[in-house]
Write a protein that binds this DNA or RNA. Structure first.
Length: 585
DNA sequence: GCCGTTTTCGGCCCGACTGTTTTCAGTCG
């Protein structure tokens, strides 16, 4: 069993233990173990063989044994027994807001509830309200939660969440009482999908701000309203939380509510190592926590004012960590050594590849696309319409492709646009790994993007083989959307990502970071390691219309999450260098 | 279950809100 699968098993064990009411610290030990394993840089087999797994922080004697067993046999009796002891349907109950392991266990033990359907029935019969620690409101909330499960549980693509958040943030900033306002949470960290929207405001008078937030247009339901925190469900199902803090605490709170949770845990530990206690209220000497009775409440303590998050990191002897990196994937260690990457910015992008026109399934002509690229200030634009096998997308055959190449040549020669246009194709990778055009045709193109669009149901070995074979073709420039995933709609086809990256490196090929907000593929989690090994990225909008050229920004954000610097990305290079790279005169 | 020069036991990150209580447990982030 490989590392990723073992990580999943450990996380599943943690969830099951939670439901069984096990010691919370034991649960966390499994979660920590899963994280430690996930971020392990080396080949797992090697570490096990050299008996060094126990040296990894967070992996002790018991986990070494379990991980080793899983790695060697793919099975674990402990896990199987645990799984058998908890009905799978009980795990789903965790998705209902307000329900955690304790309540679920209690309902299970007292009422025999083992599934969401049974839970709904028990609520309708009024049995849940009769339990100790439960009541009418809890019962109603559970029923409402079940009814809204789809909407509540739904996550949202980052770009969609951003579109909803932007006007709310603007509205908050317009309020007189508001001194500062920011969106925090996974939105600020630029995660590919976002659950809730988190807003943070600095103000001395929270009342009017709470009032505005809970009564603004688009609020479907107010789910909580306190002095400093409110939650609403917006039309469309998105949840939004607002927290108001005193101005002196704003940047401590901003850091706290930006997360991630894992990053915060590490930051607090680092504070403790320095005799400090970190929370959303500030950074305080730890001894104020000792004498509980006389200690002032955190909300009554005055933190040292800071001008920005930079100062908070500095107090913990860390360089400033951009929000995108705050995932506890090595950023704290790097910040301690002042070895953080200088992340790519949207302004670094000088041109974009992999764009469509009306020749295949785009909505704008070649000239319209070039005009839009010029308006964005791009030095170059790469066209890559579909190839003939993608007949559903009006893919080009050899003759139409030749005509497009000729048209692009004339357009470049005419000097009509400042933006240089590269010829190309998004050529289909066929089911046997061959490409949709012959080498004779491919060699006439400046930039060949090879992608899979059909036959996505093969197994991992077959899909990986296709991708590797395509990367071995000397005329291929880059691999398009590696897994074919559509976020929140369709899982990608199974791919051995390590093998594909190895093949790209071995053959000197680029892998695309498809910047379409539905794709963001290859995933940001794979870029850090890949780039360290020398993998070159191209941030491609896969635009099918002029305004979609702007998708490149989503790609830049994903690239930042993947620790990428301008030097790791082809299309941060000036035109002359890109021409040289592609062998274009 | 993990960890450790105040170490092999007894800690493990911190606080707000809700709904249930009448001082607090559970959940959430």
């Amino acid at each position: 069993m490989d590392k990723a699968d073992i990580v999943e098993v450990l996380e599943a064990i943690a969830e099951l233990l939670e439901l069984k009411g096990e010691n919370a610290f034991k649960v966390r030990a499994y979660q920590n173990g899963a994280r430690a394993l996930e971020t392990l840089d080396e080949e797992l087999g090697t570490v096990i063989a050299e008996e060094r797994l126990g040296e990894v922080k967070g992996i002790g004697k018991a986990l070494v044994e379990k991980i080793t067993t899983l790695h060697e046999t793919g099975e674990l009796e402990y896990y199987d027994k645990l799984k058998a002891s908890v009905p799978a349907t009980m795990l789903q109950m965790l998705e209902i807001p307000g329900l955690g392991p304790k309540k679920i266990k209690k309902m299970h033990d007292a009422l025999g509830v083992e599934s969401i359907d049974q839970l709904a029935a028990a609520c309708r019969e009024g049995k849940v309200a009769e339990l100790d620690g439960f009541g009418e409101k809890t019962q109603e909330k559970i029923l409402a939660g079940i009814a809204n499960r789809e909407a509540y549980a739904a996550r949202h693509r980052w770009a969609d969440a951003e579109a909803v958040a932007a006007p709310i943030l603007a509205g908050l900033r317009e309020l007189k009482a508001v001194e500062q306002a920011e969106a925090a949470g996974s939105l600020r960290r630029k995660r590919e999908t976002v659950g809730d929207l988190d807003f943070l405001v600095a103000a001395t008078e929270p009342g009017p701000i709470m009032e505005w937030f809970t009564t603004q247009d688009g609020v479907a339901e107010v789910t909580a309203k306190g002095e400093t925190k409110s939650s609403v469900r917006l039309e469309g199902g998105m949840q939004a939380d607002l927290r108001v803090v005193p101005p002196a605490q704003f940047f401590y709170a901003l850091h706290h509510f930006t997360g991630s949770k894992e990053h915060n845990v590490r930051m607090r530990q680092r504070a403790l190592e320095r005799g400090l206690s970190l929370s959303e209220w500030g950074l305080f000497p730890e001894d104020t926590r000792g004498a509980k009775e006389n200690a002032p409440k955190p909300s009554e303590r005055q933190p040292e004012p800071i001008e920005g998050e930079q100062e908070l990191f500095k107090k913990l002897d860390l360089a400033y960590i951009p929000p995108e990196l705050r995932e506890d994937r090595g950023e704290i260690e790097a910040a301690a050594k002042d070895a953080l990457p200088v992340l790519v910015e949207p302004e670094d992008i000088r041109g974009v590849f992999h764009n469509h026109t009306t020749a295949s399934d785009g909505r704008a002509s070649l000239e319209e696309m070039v005009q839009a690229a010029q308006d964005l200030g791009f030095e170059y634009l790469g066209i890559a319409d579909h190839s003939k096998s993608s007949f559903q997308a009006n893919g080009l055959d050899e003759d139409r492709l030749a005509a497009q190449v000729e048209a692009i040549g004339k357009l470049n020669a005419s000097g009509k646009f400042k933006t240089w246009v590269f010829t190309g194709s998004e050529v289909d990778i066929l089911t046997d790994g061959r490409l949709d055009f012959s080498d004779e045709v491919l060699k006439t193109l400046d930039c060949v993007v090879a992608s899979i669009h059909a036959g996505m149901t093969n197994d991992e070995a077959a899909m990986t083989k296709r991708l590797v074979k395509a990367l071995e073709n000397e005329h291929v420039t880059m691999l398009g959307h590696m897994t074919g995933r559509l976020l929140l709609r369709r899982e990608g086809y199974p791919v051995d990502t390590a093998k594909v990256i190895d093949a790209a490196l071995a053959n000197g090929k680029i892998i695309e970071l498809n910047a379409n907000p539905w794709r963001l593929d290859m995933d940001w989690r794979l870029w850090h390691k890949g780039a360290e090994r020398g993998l070159l990225c191209s941030i491609n909008p896969d635009a099918h219309a002029p305004d979609q050229l702007g998708f490149y920004r989503n790609g830049v954000y994903a690239a930042r999450k993947g620790w990428l610097e301008p030097k790791h990305i082809l299309n941060t290079r000036p035109l002359a260098e890109v021409k040289a790279y592609l062998g274009v005169k």
